[in-house]
Lab assay of single mutants.
Amino acid sequence: QTVVIGDTTYHLNNPEAAQQIAKELAKKYGLKVVISGNTIKLK
Results as ranks from 00 to 15, higher is better:
residue 3 V to F: 06
residue 16 E to L: 10
residue 43 K to F: 13
residue 31 L to H: 06
residue 15 P to M: 13
residue 34 V to F: 09
residue 36 S to C: 14
residue 21 I to Q: 01
residue 40 I to P: 00
residue 41 K to Q: 13
residue 8 T to L: 13
residue 35 I to V: 09
residue 6 G to V: 05
residue 26 A to H: 04
residue 4 V to H: 08
residue 32 K to I: 15
residue 21 I to V: 08
residue 5 I to N: 02
residue 11 H to A: 05
residue 15 P to Q: 07
residue 16 E to F: 09
residue 27 K to S: 08
residue 41 K to D: 04
residue 41 K to M: 14
residue 31 L to P: 06
residue 26 A to D: 05
residue 3 V to S: 01
residue 27 K to C: 12
residue 12 L to N: 02
residue 14 N to Y: 08
residue 26 A to K: 06
residue 25 L to V: 03
residue 13 N to Q: 12
residue 28 K to P: 00
residue 34 V to A: 03
residue 25 L to W: 07
residue 26 A to F: 10
residue 12 L to S: 03
residue 2 T to F: 13
residue 34 V to I: 11
residue 38 N to Y: 02
residue 6 G to N: 06
residue 23 K to Y: 14
residue 32 K to R: 06
residue 6 G to R: 04
residue 4 V to Y: 05
residue 8 T to H: 14
residue 4 V to F: 03
residue 23 K to C: 13
residue 32 K to Q: 12
residue 28 K to I: 08
residue 28 K to Y: 11
residue 34 V to N: 02
residue 37 G to D: 06
residue 19 Q to E: 10
residue 32 K to P: 04
residue 3 V to A: 02
residue 9 T to P: 04
residue 27 K to L: 10
residue 6 G to K: 04
residue 32 K to M: 13
residue 35 I to N: 03
residue 20 Q to I: 09
residue 21 I to E: 01
residue 30 G to T: 00
residue 28 K to E: 04
residue 16 E to C: 10
residue 9 T to G: 02
residue 42 L to E: 01
residue 12 L to P: 05
residue 41 K to F: 15
residue 43 K to G: 06
residue 34 V to G: 01
residue 33 V to K: 00
residue 31 L to M: 08
residue 19 Q to H: 12
residue 9 T to H: 08
residue 9 T to V: 13
residue 13 N to S: 13
residue 4 V to P: 01
residue 3 V to I: 14
residue 37 G to E: 04
residue 19 Q to P: 01
residue 4 V to L: 06
residue 37 G to F: 06
residue 42 L to Q: 01
residue 28 K to W: 09
residue 33 V to Q: 01
residue 17 A to H: 10
residue 12 L to C: 15
residue 5 I to C: 15
residue 34 V to D: 06
residue 6 G to M: 07
residue 27 K to D: 12
residue 13 N to G: 09
residue 43 K to D: 07
residue 9 T to I: 13
residue 10 Y to K: 05
residue 14 N to G: 09
residue 29 Y to S: 04
residue 26 A to V: 03
residue 29 Y to P: 05
residue 12 L to W: 12
residue 36 S to I: 13
residue 17 A to L: 13
residue 38 N to Q: 06
residue 12 L to F: 15
residue 19 Q to V: 13
residue 1 Q to V: 15
residue 43 K to W: 11
residue 32 K to Y: 09
residue 5 I to P: 01
residue 1 Q to A: 14
residue 13 N to T: 10
residue 38 N to M: 06
residue 10 Y to E: 03
residue 30 G to Q: 05
residue 13 N to D: 14
residue 20 Q to C: 09
residue 12 L to V: 12
residue 31 L to Y: 08
residue 42 L to T: 01
residue 34 V to Q: 08
residue 31 L to R: 01
residue 13 N to A: 13
residue 33 V to D: 00
residue 43 K to H: 09
residue 4 V to Q: 11
residue 28 K to L: 11
residue 21 I to N: 00
residue 3 V to E: 01
residue 29 Y to M: 05
residue 15 P to E: 09
residue 25 L to K: 00
residue 8 T to I: 14
residue 30 G to R: 06
residue 38 N to H: 05
residue 35 I to Q: 05
residue 2 T to E: 06
residue 26 A to T: 02
residue 23 K to A: 11
residue 8 T to F: 15
residue 29 Y to F: 09
residue 29 Y to A: 06
residue 36 S to K: 10
residue 34 V to H: 07
residue 35 I to M: 06
residue 22 A to D: 00
residue 12 L to Y: 15
residue 2 T to H: 09
residue 33 V to A: 03
residue 25 L to Y: 02
residue 41 K to C: 15
residue 23 K to L: 12
residue 43 K to M: 15
residue 28 K to S: 02
residue 22 A to H: 00
residue 3 V to T: 02
residue 40 I to F: 02
residue 19 Q to A: 10
residue 33 V to Y: 04
residue 41 K to H: 14
residue 3 V to P: 01
residue 26 A to I: 05
residue 23 K to R: 11
residue 39 T to H: 04
residue 31 L to D: 04
residue 23 K to M: 12
residue 29 Y to R: 06
residue 31 L to Q: 03
residue 5 I to D: 02
residue 27 K to N: 07
residue 13 N to L: 13
residue 13 N to C: 14
residue 27 K to P: 05
residue 2 T to C: 14
residue 28 K to V: 05
residue 15 P to G: 07
residue 4 V to D: 02
residue 30 G to N: 06
residue 8 T to R: 14
residue 24 E to N: 11
residue 34 V to S: 06
residue 16 E to W: 10
residue 7 D to I: 13
residue 18 A to F: 13
residue 29 Y to D: 04
residue 4 V to A: 04
residue 43 K to Q: 13
residue 18 A to G: 02
residue 10 Y to C: 15
residue 36 S to Q: 11
residue 19 Q to N: 09
residue 42 L to W: 02
residue 43 K to L: 15
residue 15 P to H: 08
residue 41 K to E: 12
residue 4 V to W: 05
residue 27 K to Y: 07
residue 16 E to M: 10
residue 37 G to A: 03
